[in-house]
Amino acid sequence: MQQFFFAESKAFGSRVEQLFNFIHPASVALWNLRWQVQGFVSASPGATEAELSGRFSSGSGIKASNLKEVCVETPWESQMGQFAQIVGANMIALYEGWSEEIFFKLTGKRPGRGPGPSKDIQFPSRGQFGRVTKGVRDVLADMHAIGISSEMKAAFFPVYSASKKYSHNELDGLTALYRYHKEIRNSFMHGGGLASKVAEAAWRNASTLTKVDIGGKADPILTQITEGQSITYTIEEAIQLADVIIRLVHTIDAELSYSSQAEQYFLDAWKASSGILKLQQLPTDTVRRDRRIAKICRKVGFVTPADPAAAITLGKRAGMIS
């Protein structure tokens, strides 16, 4: 089960689930359609496109064209490559949208055309993999420099950072691998599927990574990229990208959960929760008190705190409990 601190991260997790809830059955459906069309054409070699469309798309509201070309003449691997591009483009868009929203929440500023935290977070840190300007760790350091809440760190960070997807030590390797996928996406969208010089450089950086660098059970899945040459992208690579991005969001979300802005976000959510004043008076018994603060935290959309006393300190300081 995914656990995120910020609402934007929770929305990201839901959208990723929706994407794969579409991709998985859609790919299975296409596989079965291919099998059925191939069987029909084998039995009726002279079947027309109109006959095929009438047989396999009737009632769908969609006119199926070129079913013979799609299901008989087109290799399955080619179609899986199309699914891979859909997954890759959507995952990158989700990550970019999440980064813009999370840093707008924390800074109050929308990203401009130049560098900024929502863009820098998509690169390895300064000095890593040829990066000469700010990257992922630099952005987190900047946010922590603005202010850290020791109570938030004690109360919630241990829970969010306990996720199997939390990958703080691998942030630079993960963002280097992300750049490989991002430049493939850019080449498809802006270069007609031909690799750019930047894409080749991103592949060279990613090709130095091992499973240790990305915290995985296996080395990264990569296909060599050469400038000016057509790019091949597989569904295995797209699934790898999804895991990379999910791990980045888990890690960054956890790291930002103890910023001073996160404390205010937590308290604002507490104050806005309906019926929360009924829980204002804490029991004197320690066990019941800890259960009460855990109930409050879950009610306002967060996890049971690792350190109930720290959450109580936050609530008392804000006048929410006594």
Rank of each mutant, 00 (worst) to 15 (best):
192 G>H: 13
152 M>T: 06
180 Y>K: 02
139 V>E: 02
137 R>I: 02
195 A>C: 13
177 L>S: 00
193 G>I: 05
142 D>V: 11
123 F>G: 00
152 M>S: 05
177 L>H: 02
147 G>S: 05
160 Y>Q: 10
119 K>L: 14
131 R>F: 02
167 S>Q: 08
122 Q>C: 10
151 E>R: 09
195 A>P: 03
123 F>I: 01
172 D>Y: 05
162 A>C: 07
145 A>T: 09
122 Q>S: 11
175 T>N: 06
136 V>M: 10
127 G>Q: 03
137 R>W: 08
158 P>R: 02
117 P>W: 15
134 K>G: 04
129 F>H: 14
133 T>V: 14
143 M>I: 07
133 T>C: 03
158 P>C: 04
144 H>P: 03
148 I>T: 15
163 S>N: 07
156 F>Y: 15
184 I>Q: 00
189 M>L: 12
177 L>V: 04
138 D>P: 03
174 L>E: 05
158 P>A: 08
159 V>T: 15
143 M>E: 14
133 T>I: 12
150 S>Y: 06
186 N>C: 00
157 F>W: 11
152 M>P: 05
176 A>P: 01
170 E>H: 14
170 E>Q: 15
137 R>V: 04
118 S>M: 06
137 R>S: 09
148 I>C: 08
136 V>G: 08
164 K>W: 09
174 L>F: 08
141 A>V: 05
181 H>F: 10
188 F>Y: 15
172 D>P: 04
189 M>P: 01
124 P>V: 12
149 S>V: 02
176 A>M: 03
173 G>H: 03
158 P>N: 05
188 F>S: 03
156 F>D: 10
186 N>L: 05
127 G>I: 04
117 P>D: 10
173 G>K: 01
187 S>H: 09
172 D>S: 06
138 D>Y: 05
172 D>I: 00
185 R>F: 14
141 A>P: 01
186 N>K: 00
141 A>Q: 11
143 M>P: 05
181 H>E: 01
172 D>H: 07
154 A>H: 02
161 S>A: 15
180 Y>R: 00
177 L>K: 00
135 G>V: 14
150 S>I: 03
152 M>V: 10
155 A>Y: 15
165 K>Q: 12
164 K>H: 14
149 S>D: 04
146 I>A: 09
165 K>A: 15
157 F>M: 08
147 G>Q: 08
149 S>A: 02
182 K>V: 02
128 Q>Y: 15
179 R>Q: 14
178 Y>M: 01
142 D>F: 06
124 P>D: 10
185 R>M: 05
191 G>Y: 00
